[in-house]
Structure formats: structure tokens, C-alpha cells
């Protein structure tokens, strides 16, 4: 690790203000950032720890939705009675991230702000049509994830919470990378009041939806309805663990299983 200045601000404004230094880095759970720093693959001038900011953790029920603070850890989402009741598939998904010690540190805000192409949360946020709250505004899930490790967040913008609407049926199916435990392919299917949404992580540069499957599932919410819908492998990720062709195939398989698991 290179040396840096460590700050632990106690107000959002202070934290956001420090981001005027473009080489400052926010650290939430640190589950991606700290390993990167250990490998000397980044050299931030300042590390701004969000851990002492008030009001960023916790899970609250808000009418027909659940609001999860940006610094809420995966383990808390996984065990939350509220999440289990309102969006049970999200609680289950949180239990599939990393490993137990990672889930005890990693946060929802950190995960979605990082937008790793194989992270689990982006699929949940998009499929569940969540809304991302920042210190400046609210951003719809469909507008939030913009590309490989890229989001709509502007400099100085910090995720404060994510609001998930109550969902009728949803399920997340993850096909793990046997080494890293990231998703080779993860498919989150949700049937909400706003329609059926199918969001895929791991397969592309960033989370994406599958309109053909959504249409077919809107007509008939059965696994059979999408069994013959293949997504093109053009542009999908390819690495030593899985080719683009295999990933494309897995999207259909995982989507089918997610629908079947919705019961």
C-alpha cells in the first residue's frame, strides 16, 4: 500500500467536500478498495472513511418499500426481518455475496458505487426497480449503472440509501466463479407492480436487462416461457472461467431457474 491521509468525517458535507481532490477515495466497507490498495494498483492521496457518518446505516420500512442505508452491511440485509418480509429475494441475495467475513464489512452503497461487472447488488437494484438516494438527488436504477465500473454518480456524490419497492415475486440465481465467488452469471427476476424485470450481472460490462424475457414473462410468468430465449453473446464477458457463449447460455438457464424458484 502507498501512504495516504486517512480521514473519518462526521458529516456528509465534509466527506463530499473532500472529494474535490480528485485523487481522494471514499471507503465504505473497503472490500474492493483495500485489496486494490494492498496490491498497489491505486495511489489515492486521501482515504475518506464513511464509517462515522450518521444516518447512513439501517433498514427501515417506508410504506410499501424498504429503505436501506448506504453503509448498511450485506450481513445486516441478509438477516433483516424487514427485508425478509418486504423483499425476501434481496435478503437471500445479500447472503450470497463474498463470504461471511466480507458480508460483515461490505456495504450496499460501496457495492453499487463500485459497480463491478460481476457484483450481485446491481442485479438486485435494477430488477427490483430500486431508487438510489445520494447526498444530492434520487436516481432510478435504470439510470444508475452506466458501464464497466461506472455509475451516474458525479464527483462529490455519495450514496446515502437505496429504496426498494415491495415485490410480489422475485428470485436471484447466481452461478459462481469457483475461485473468486463473484457471479459468472447472476440473474435477478422480479415481478413487481410495474411489470416483470430481468436483470443480469456477471455476463456483460455492467448489469443489463433482457427485454425479450421480460415481455415473455409478462405474458406468462413461467420458466417455460423463456426457455428458448437466447441472448446474443456478442459483447459479453469472456475470461478463463467462462466464454461469452457459455455466459449467454447461463443467462437463460439462470433466468429460468429464477422464475421457477419464484414459485
Amino acid at each position: 500500500m502507498y501512504e495516504f491521509d486517512y480521514h473519518r468525517p462526521t458529516s456528509l458535507d465534509d466527506a463530499a467536500g473532500r472529494l474535490s481532490d480528485e485523487d481522494a477515495k471514499l471507503v465504505a466497507g473497503g472490500m474492493t478498495l483495500i485489496p486494490t490498495l494492498k496490491l498497489r494498483l491505486a495511489k489515492p492521496t486521501q482515504l475518506i472513511d464513511l464509517g462515522a457518518l450518521p444516518g447512513l446505516t439501517g433498514i427501515t420500512e417506508d410504506g410499501d418499500s424498504v429503505v436501506i442505508g448506504g453503509m448498511t452491511r450485506h450481513a445486516d440485509v441478509n438477516r433483516s426481518e424487514v427485508v425478509k418480509r418486504v423483499v425476501p429475494a434481496l435478503a437471500a441475495m445479500a447472503g450470497l455475496i463474498g463470504d461471511p467475513a466480507v458480508r460483515n464489512r461490505g456495504t450496499i452503497g460501496g457495492s453499487i458505487a463500485n459497480n463491478d461487472p460481476a457484483a450481485d447488488y446491481p442485479a438486485g437494484v435494477v430488477a427490483l426497480n430500486a431508487t438510489v438516494r445520494t447526498n444530492k438527488r434520487e436516481i432510478a436504477a435504470d439510470d444508475f449503472f452506466t458501464g464497466l465500473f461506472e455509475t451516474a454518480l458525479e464527483p462529490g456524490e455519495i450514496v446515502t440509501a437505496v429504496r426498494f419497492p415491495k415485490v410480489a415475486m422475485a428470485n436471484y440465481q447466481k452461478f459462481r466463479n469457483p475461485a473468486s465467488r463473484y457471479a459468472i452469471v447472476g440473474v435477478f427476476v422480479a415481478r413487481t407492480s410495474a411489470g416483470v424485470r430481468v436483470a443480469v450481472t456477471g455476463a456483460g460490462a455492467s448489469v443489463f436487462r433482457v427485454p425479450a424475457m421480460e415481455a415473455a414473462l409478462t405474458a406468462s410468468f413461467t420458466a417455460d416461457a423463456i426457455k428458448d430465449i437466447a441472448i446474443p453473446d456478442d459483447g459479453l464477458n469472456s475470461d478463463i472461467h467462462a466464454s461469452a457463449e457459455y455466459r449467454a447460455h447461463l443467462v437463460t438457464v439462470m433466468a429460468r431457474r429464477a422464475v421457477a424458484a419464484c414459485g
Binding site: M31, I34, D99, A101, V102, N104, R105, S180
Partner: peptide, 22 residues
């Protein structure tokens, strides 16, 4: 790379990887 778990300790009663916490 924060994967092997040989460094797991408890912080405030919860298991964390001591190699991934400053």
C-alpha cells in the same frame, strides 16, 4: 486478495478479515 481467511479476527463480536481493515 482477502480470500484465504487465515487472518480472521472478531471486531466488536463479528468475524472480519484483519488484512482488509485498516
Amino acid at each position: 486478495t482477502s480470500q484465504c481467511g487465515a487472518c480472521v479476527v472478531h471486531v466488536d463480536g463479528e468475524a472480519i478479515k484483519a488484512c482488509t481493515l485498516l
